[in-house]
């Protein structure tokens, strides 16, 4: 039995009429969305519809042409599509990078690193290895551990499992769900995979090819997600609903 998520209705992330243009090309067009604290929202859409751009705007890595993003809490943590690890640092040193940059006390640092490493399924031996010595899945775990080390209130994930095989992807989905449930974070998750989006989320935001919002589908499935749920009629209905909106927005 997993811990129920405490959800405040106060938005953790507010995206207000956000548009983004690169030259003449409109990438995002008047996107608005409130994400309550503790909710997992996935963003799906065809390639080039601005999913990653939206996430970068939320993180403050890209300035929107118009509109704004309001964050209820501190700066959210970000997990990129690539693990973006510093190859000359061990996994442990990569995980502690945000603590170093914040110039936080070194006291209890190793405990914190071990704690987050354990949370993402890495042991003490793994974290002493260099990125080149780790598999793709392990590198991604290190990247997630680095994002979690600062105990963020919100986590932004930009297709973190896109390069992984299906079995590993499902395993990491399950682990990430567990982390979300135990850490009580707000999650904004970009993916191409509709099944993954429905399985992980409480809401799926569908972006059209022209950068507008095509739909906002509530996933009112039990909060304890187990792989078997993927074969149940309610799950398949939600997947079909999201797919339909995606096809209409092409």
């Amino acid at each position: 039995m997993t811990t129920p998520i405490s959800m405040s209705r106060k938005p953790a992330i507010t995206i207000d009429d956000l548009s983004m243009q690169y030259g003449d090309a409109t990438v995002l067009d008047s996107v608005s969305c409130d994400i309550p604290a503790g909710q997992w929202v996935s963003i799906v859409g065809p390639s080039g519809c601005g999913k990653s751009t939206l996430l970068r705007c939320v993180a403050g890595l890209t300035n929107p042409t118009t509109g704004m993003v309001q964050l209820g809490g501190e700066q959210p943590a970000f997990v990129f599509q690539d693990p973006t690890l510093l190859p000359w640092r061990s996994a442990a040193d990569n995980i502690q990078l945000p603590l170093e940059l914040e110039e936080q006390s070194t006291e209890n640092r190793s405990d914190r690193i071990l704690q987050v490493a354990k949370l993402v399924g890495l042991d003490a031996t793994d974290i002493n290895k260099y990125p080149r010595e780790l598999s793709g899945g392990m590198r991604m775990r290190v990247s997630i551990a680095r994002a979690l080390v600062m105990k963020p209130n919100a986590l932004l994930l930009d297709e973190p499992f896109a390069a992984l095989d299906e079995i590993l992807r499902q395993q990491l989905n399950q682990e990430l769900l567990h982390i979300w449930q135990t850490q009580q974070m707000t999650v904004l998750f970009v993916t191409h995979n509709v099944t993954e989006a429905v399985y992980l989320s409480q809401r799926v935001l569908v972006l059209n090819a022209n950068g507008t919002v095509g739909g906002d589908v509530a996933i009112d499935l039990p909060i304890d997600r187990v792989p078997a749920i993927r074969n149940t009629p309610p799950f398949l209905e939600k997947t079909a609903a999201v797919t339909r909106i995606l096809q209409e927005g092409l």
């Binding site: 993180a59 403050g60 890595l61 700066q75 943590a77 970000f78 990129f80 690539d82 973006t84 510093l86 990078l97 945000p98 940059l101 914040e102």
Partner: peptide
């Protein structure tokens, strides 16, 4: 420099 790493540093306000 890898732009991903620079983004990472920007995120943590390095």
């Amino acid at each position: 420099v890898d732009t991903g790493l620079l983004d990472l540093m920007t995120l943590y306000r390095a």
